[in-house]
Simulated scan of single mutants.
Amino acid sequence: MTINNKLISKGFILAGIMNCSVLLFSRGFTNKTINTYDPDVMSNFGMVMILIWGLAYISVAYKFQNVKWLVFIFAIEKLIYGYVWLQWITTNDVSIVYDKDKMAGIFYSIYGINDWLFCVFFLFVFIRLLRQQ
């Protein structure tokens, strides 16, 4: 199966949109429940940085072939967030978050899965770019 560059570009845009969804889950950075359950990673500053990463993905969607090492950095960034989420989800009770705020509960349930999926995507794109040299 061959994945063309148009589809890869859409993947970058989707990754960006998913990161920008932090605005929805945080209700424009006003949902304090998200901050409360992981204040180091999910402070308002942390969520702004998630938004910035998302905009970075979108910014290279049609030029990803020219920034292969940046694509690799994207994969590393997603790996780190995925790992942090795995640690969080295995040491916290997400049902408590749901009881406090459903949007925050949904956010904590899915953000790491999203990060792992896009880690694989960015790694795939990076390896593909390396092989094209």
Rank of each mutant, 00 (worst) to 15 (best):
Y57Q: 07
S26V: 12
K10S: 14
W116G: 03
C119L: 12
G105Q: 04
S95P: 02
A56W: 07
T30N: 07
L24T: 15
F126T: 11
I80F: 05
A15L: 05
F12G: 06
M103E: 14
G105Y: 01
Q87C: 11
D115K: 06
N66D: 11
F45K: 07
I34L: 04
F107V: 01
K78R: 15
F122A: 12
V67G: 05
W116K: 10
G28I: 12
V125P: 03
K102P: 06
N92C: 09
L7W: 10
L51Y: 07
K100H: 14
V94R: 11
F74A: 10
N4G: 08
K63N: 11
L79P: 00
Y111E: 06
G112V: 08
W53E: 03
M49C: 06
I80Q: 02
V125G: 00
D93H: 09
L117I: 14
S95N: 11
N35D: 14
D38G: 07
F126K: 08
Q133T: 14
W88Q: 06
F118K: 05
G46M: 05
F126N: 10
N92S: 13
K68D: 08
A61H: 01
S9G: 12
S59G: 05
F107G: 02
K102F: 15
K10R: 10
F29Y: 15
F29R: 08
D40V: 15
M47Q: 11
A104F: 05
Y62D: 10
L7F: 13
N5V: 13
I3S: 05
I3D: 06
T2Y: 14
Y57L: 03
P39R: 09
L23A: 10
V48P: 00
N44F: 09
L7T: 14
W69Y: 15
F118V: 09
N4M: 07
L51K: 03
F45C: 00
L86C: 13
M1W: 07
I110C: 07
G46Q: 02
